[in-house]
Amino acid sequence: MRSRPGLAGVLAGALLLAGCGGSDEPEVTGSVVDPPFEVAATPLEDTDGQPFSLADDTDARLTLVFFGYTQCPDVCPLVMQTLTSGLNKLSDAEREQVEVAFVSTDPATDTGPVLRDYLDRFDPTYVGVRGDLDTTAAVAESVGVFVADGEELDSGGYGLDSHSTYVIAVDGNDQAPMFWRQSTSAAQFAHDISTLLGDA
């Protein structure tokens, strides 16, 4: 089992300090989950065909998880580009502590090579993950994303609507203490991620 500092405590401390300071401005833009979601360890499959669990196989201190599909015409690429721009605002030391996992909600279309090609347009370090829809839906539900509530695609997958296009923060304790909505800006992503990482 991995032994890394959790981020929920860092986030709680930051929010407490903000409250004590009397500021009306939110310390973070993302929505805090209290208690944090417990991320399911059920393995899916990466773009190389190897088992990949959002709980057991994420190596960074902070993993940012997005559920979407490569044929999404608007929201998915917008969120991914904004997130990428936010990550590019981090220091090198911060960026090294963060990884991104894109989980397909359309596995019939999003084969390993298709996912890899799509993610390479944003950042070649991003991990592409896919699995059968029932397994994907179960993993998604563990972090508060409900895949089956999306629009059913002709391929049999699901296109998530604006209420489900969240970026989920997963920490080293396999918990998800925060998520961001699609309206989050690159600067807000960068600020919140820095806050989550704290002084580490």
Rank of each mutant, 00 (worst) to 15 (best):
Q182K: 14
D59Y: 15
G19A: 06
S91K: 06
L115Q: 09
P77Q: 10
V143C: 08
W180A: 05
M80Q: 13
E38N: 03
D57Q: 08
G128T: 04
A140W: 02
E141F: 04
Q182N: 15
E152V: 08
C72D: 12
D56S: 12
P36V: 01
N88A: 12
D74W: 11
S104E: 10
L90W: 08
G49I: 12
T111V: 06
D123L: 03
D92P: 02
E25M: 03
L7A: 03
K89I: 07
S155G: 05
L87R: 01
P107D: 03
V100K: 10
G157D: 01
L44T: 06
F52Q: 08
Q50I: 15
L64Q: 15
T58H: 14
L11F: 08
S155D: 07
D24F: 04
S162C: 11
A55D: 10
E45M: 12
Q97G: 08
L197A: 11
E38T: 03
G19T: 03
D57L: 06
S53Q: 10
G172N: 04
G150R: 01
S85N: 11
A137N: 07
A148K: 14
L196I: 04
A186W: 00
A12Y: 10
E25N: 07
D199Y: 08
D132K: 04
D171S: 10
Q97D: 11
G49D: 12
L153W: 03
A60S: 13
D132W: 02
D117E: 11
R130D: 15
S91C: 08
V98K: 04
L90I: 07
L78P: 08
P36A: 03
G6D: 07
R61S: 15
E25Q: 03
L54V: 06
R2Y: 14
A60R: 10
E27L: 11
L17R: 13
Y158E: 05
L196E: 05
A186Y: 00
Q71A: 15
D120K: 12
A41V: 09
R4H: 15
V33G: 03
D110L: 05
E25S: 01
S3A: 14
Q182G: 06
E99V: 08
L62F: 09
A190M: 06
D34G: 00
G30W: 00
P51W: 05
V103K: 02
S142G: 01
S85K: 04
F102S: 06
T105W: 02
D46F: 09
S85G: 07
P73L: 06
W180L: 07
D46T: 13
G112H: 09
D117F: 12
T109G: 12
G21M: 10
G68S: 13
A176L: 12
S183Y: 05
T184C: 13
S85A: 08
D161F: 09
L115G: 14
P35S: 01
D134E: 09
D59N: 15
G19V: 02
L87Y: 01
L16W: 07
G159W: 03
R116W: 11
S194L: 11
A176Q: 11
P124K: 13
M1P: 11
D174A: 13
A108Q: 15
S23A: 02
A101L: 09
S142A: 02
F67I: 03
L90S: 13
K89Q: 15
F37N: 00
V139E: 05
D106Y: 00
L16P: 04
D46L: 05
D110V: 09
Y166R: 08
R116P: 15
S162Q: 12
G128M: 06
S23I: 06
P43G: 03
